[in-house]
Design a protein around this nucleic acid. Structure first.
Lengths: 205, 205
DNA sequence: TTGTTACCTGTCCTTCGGTCCAATACTTTT
DNA sequence: AAAAGTATTGGACCGAAGGACAGGTAACAA
């Protein structure tokens, strides 16, 4: 594969794109939706109808997505990354830069428009202060080991994963977990996570 | 320049590093502080005294920093990126992977340990308030019916209960749920509930 | 010593969860 | 009219989850 597909409405930016990648083709959203597959490099403009959705879909198919914007901004950058895009750059980037972006993204890297990168990472780091005020109330009546298991399970791990992490048998995880269920009076891991996150399970039966 | 310098306390991981980069040298924090300059590729272990500070300083000098950890986690990843590192990977990554990281970072790309990438991007997106709540963002790409099922499941209901509530077959619940998993790129209902409640699954394997 | 508790493991079994292979019908888009 | 998306169901399959039952060690208190 390894084709380069440019998804845009108009065709104004095509020259520098095709200069960057001689074999590149311009496509409509419908065309990429139909054609793009694993290994393809898809460059998508953010002025396209539902570009995050399309991005997400193509990423699922194994394509490498790079979002391009005429006015790069932080929110859109994260929308792109959140949708699975591996790059976010200015639409009028120089061919050399585009090739650099391709090189990075094809190697599992992320490429974010430099001016945005610094700004975004900085503000985010500050914003992410305290988050883990887990329910100490519920955890109080558990033994140390049960707490370990409960927290690991509540983080979304499977029994097998918990077992690996705590270096015990999957069977032991089940044993502890059973005790946790009894003590906290929940019926399964779903209820456990709801309890520990302070929410309430709304189960009718 | 373009030297490769590894900063670590011990020397246990040196073999695979020097296998990845034949000319690589292992340094103490004091040595890199004195020697490293523009264009150098510096790989720093996160068990080093004040590694964020050292990272920051070397980045200012124009070096390319990659942080390496034995237990990659989101907070540390942020610390690294915030300090100006361009990469964050597992300390025991295979030589081929290390070379890939080098290729990406030298081209202005970011390289984040894959398991963490989604987590980091997701939490960042929310922290920025790009979408006030993660769940609305996630639910947007679902159909009405899929939303019904996803919410019922996230409330802690079993498939059977959801089926009763929505007056459909358990089989249909599974079908919708499968679609939800695909679209939200989660592997099971545990991850789903974590996603919808705005938390992040910290699953390592 | 005995009793209790935490912790760890095993086997057997049932149910649940998730995915694969379909299929039918309805609506919307092209 | 043709194509695509959505909603619904079926069956088969397999692994995960959880309970029942039955052990084992180690620490600590009565």
């Amino acid at each position: 594969m390894n084709r380069h597909l440019f998804v845009s409405k108009g065709r104004d930016d095509i020259p520098r794109w095709s200069e960057a990648f001689p074999g590149a083709r311009q496509c409509s959203p419908q065309q990429v939706r139909a054609q793009a597959g694993a290994g393809d490099h898809v460059w998508i403009m953010t002025d396209i109808e539902d570009w995050p959705g399309l991005t997400e879909r193509l990423v699922q198919r194994g394509a490498i997505l790079v979002a391009l914007s005429h006015q790069p901004n932080a929110t859109q950058a994260f929308q792109a990354l959140n949708a699975g895009a591996r790059g976010y750059a200015h639409a009028l980037s120089a061919p050399a830069l585009l090739r650099q972006v391709a090189l990075v993204t094809v190697n599992q890297g992320l490429w974010v428009w430099p001016e945005l990168l610094r700004q975004v990472v900085g503000s985010t780091y500050r914003a992410l202060g305290g988050a883990s005020q887990a329910n100490t109330q519920a955890l109080a009546c558990l033994t140390a080991r049960e707490r370990d298991v409960a927290l690991a399970v509540a983080a979304g791990n499977s029994n097998k994963e918990v077992a690996r992490k705590l270096e015990i048998t999957e069977r032991t995880v089940k044993a502890h977990l059973g005790a946790v269920f009894r003590k906290l009076r929940v019926r399964d891991r779903m209820q456990l996570i709801l309890t520990l996150s302070g929410q309430e399970a709304s189960v009718t039966s």
